[in-house]
């Protein structure tokens, strides 16, 4: 009797174990189920590379190139800001900060990771947006630049914590060896620690960027949401995620617009899948 009960429990545990695979597949299937229908009315290349996103005009124009470029622009901006700062901070925490300061800094980074994106978006709206507007004398501060700055902050916790882990797991004797040869602390960091931790740091940067591409609320609140091909970083843009979030509420279930938004979902899913798989390979690469 007990054996039978335990047999059932162990099967249940196995089922929960594979649940993650099940959910990933389920997400993909349902995105595909709703999203592929859009290609009955637009060709794949028109969808990906069309210059116009007018989903509710008659007939609708469903080209997501402006959205892709919007996402890329904001992401590059965020990466340029967050990668050097994030990696720098990780080095500081892992190598330089005294133990007590280290604990406080790590708690601070955790704090940043915990702030909901809608709160960061709100703070960005009331502080950063007017600032950008005044500094660059723009008609509006809702620009790609504002989005990049805000998103940089959302990428930093990921970058810092994973890069710090990578630095921490460099074998101690590497460092001792370098010190024994008379290298300064900085030379040790630059010549020994960073190269030894490089694959972990690459993964950290990739996952940080993944976070930026997928970020939705803050970006929707402060990038201005103009679905046009961006010509500079100081104009409003609209990202892939913001488009879905902003428009799905109005899209009629079963309309082309609805299908197109799901197709954007497929694009986002595929991007995040590729980033995560690659980052995982970097993380588990044996040095």
């Amino acid at each position: 009797m007990r054996k039978f009960k335990e047999f059932i429990i162990e099967k249940l545990i196995l089922a929960c174990g594979v649940a993650s695979i099940f959910f990933v597949v389920l997400i993909f299937l349902f995105l595909v189920k709703e999203g592929l229908a859009v290609f009955r009315s637009v060709s794949f290349s028109h969808f990906m590379f069309g210059h116009k996103w007018y989903p509710i005009s008659e007939p609708p124009h469903l080209g997501i190139l402006p959205l892709i470029l919007g996402s890329i622009l904001v992401t590059i901006g965020a990466a340029v800001i967050s990668v050097p700062i994030g990696v720098g901070c990780a080095v500081y925490i892992a190598e330089i900060a005294p133990l007590r300061v280290k604990e406080i800094l790590k708690a601070g980074i955790e704090l940043l990771a915990a702030i909901p994106s809608v709160v960061l978006g709100f703070v960005g709206m009331v502080t950063l947006v007017p600032l950008v507007k005044n500094i660059f004398h723009l008609p509006t501060g809702l620009t790609a630049l504002s989005g990049s700055v805000m998103l940089a902050f959302m990428a930093m916790p990921t970058i810092v914590s994973i890069a710090e882990d990578a630095l921490y797991s460099v074998p101690k004797n590497y460092k001792e060896g370098a010190f024994a040869l008379g290298a300064t602390h900085w030379q040790t960091i630059w010549r020994v620690m960073l190269p030894a931790a490089s694959s972990g740091i690459v993964a950290a940067v990739m996952l940080g960027i993944g976070r930026v591409i997928g970020e939705t609320m803050a970006v929707m609140m402060i990038t201005g949401n103009a679905a046009i091909l961006p010509k500079s970083i100081l104009v409003p843009v609209r990202t892939l995620t913001a488009t879905v979030a902003a428009e799905m509420g109005e899209a009629v279930v079963g309309s082309e617009h609805y299908f197109a938004l799901f197709a954007i979902g497929i694009v986002l899913f595929v991007i995040s899948f590729m980033i995560n798989v690659t980052a995982d390979l970097f993380l588990h690469r044996r040095p």
Partner: peptide, 24 residues
């Protein structure tokens, strides 16, 4: 594969979860 699926589940953009919840 399970571990990879967990990593991916953690990385799926939140708005994609929204789409998925809507569809399913």
């Amino acid at each position: 594969i399970i571990k990879l699926a967990i990593v991916n589940l953690a990385g799926v953009p939140s708005v994609v979860y929204g789409l998925f919840g809507l569809a399913l």
